[in-house]
C-alpha cells in the first residue's frame, strides 16, 4: 500500500512536469517543469532499486543538461513569444491522433508480446546499492568496454564540435 502511494505520487509528479512542459507557452517555465519531471523520474529509478542511476539522473539531467537549456533561454530572453504551438487545426488533430496511434501501438505490443510482465508485482528484491554499482562497473569495463571507449571519443568530438559551432561569427564576437 505504501509502495503504491509512493508510485502514484512519483508518477503524478512526473506526468505533471511533462504535461506542463508540453502546454506552458513560456519556454523557461517549460524547462522548469521538465526539471520537476526529471526529478520525478529519478525518484522512480530509486524506487526500482537503481539508486546510483537515480543520483546520476539528477546530476546529469537536472544539474547539467537542463541548466544549459535554462541558461540559453535566459540569455535569449524569450519572454515575449507570441505563438508557442504550431498552426493549423487539421494538422494539430492529425498530430495528436498519430501520437494516440503510437501510444496504442506501444500498449498493444506490451500486452501481446510482454504479457508475462503484466501481472508481475514489484517484489522487494535485494537493493542494488554498492554491490550493484560494483557489478555494474565490472560489466561496464569488461563486456561493454568497446562502447564505453567509443562514447569517450564521441564526447570529445562533441565537445570540440559544440565549441566550434557556438564560436561562429556574428553577434558580439565579430571577427574580421
Amino acid at each position: 500500500m505504501v509502495e503504491a502511494l509512493l508510485f502514484w505520487f512519483l508518477a503524478l509528479v512526473t506526468l505533471f512536469g511533462a504535461v506542463a512542459m508540453l502546454l506552458v507557452p513560456n519556454p523557461i517555465y517549460a524547462a522548469m517543469s521538465l526539471v520537476v519531471s526529471m526529478i520525478g523520474i529519478s525518484g522512480l529509478f530509486a524506487f526500482l532499486g537503481a539508486d546510483f542511476i537515480a543520483g546520476v539522473q539528477v546530476i546529469v539531467y537536472a544539474g547539467a543538461v537542463l541548466v544549459l537549456f535554462v541558461m540559453v533561454l535566459m540569455l535569449f530572453d524569450l519572454k515575449s513569444e507570441t505563438q508557442a504551438f504550431s498552426k493549423g487545426l487539421l494538422s494539430r488533430i492529425f498530430k495528436v491522433a498519430s501520437v494516440g496511434f503510437l501510444l496504442g501501438g506501444l500498449i498493444g505490443v506490451m500486452v501481446l508480446e510482454f504479457s508475462w510482465i503484466l501481472p508481475v508485482f514489484m517484489q522487494s528484491s535485494p537493493q542494488w546499492t554498492m554491490t550493484g554499482v560494483k557489478k555494474m562497473a565490472q560489466l561496464l569495463f569488461t563486456e561493454y568496454m568497446f562502447i564505453f571507449q567509443i562514447l569517450g571519443v564521441l564526447l570529445l568530438v562533441v565537445a570540440v564540435g559544440a565549441v566550434a559551432l557556438a564560436r561562429s561569427r556574428g553577434g558580439t564576437h565579430e571577427r574580421a
Binding site: 512542459m21 508540453l22 524569450l78 504551438f85 494539430r92
Partner: peptide
C-alpha cells in the same frame, strides 16, 4: 509510454526549437 507520447507531442506541436529539444 505516456511520457514518450508526451515527448512526441512536444516535438510535433511546439514551435520553439529549445522546447522541441527538451
Amino acid at each position: 509510454f505516456v511520457l514518450f507520447a508526451l515527448g512526441v507531442l512536444g516535438v510535433l506541436l511546439r514551435r520553439n526549437l529549445i522546447v522541441v529539444m527538451m
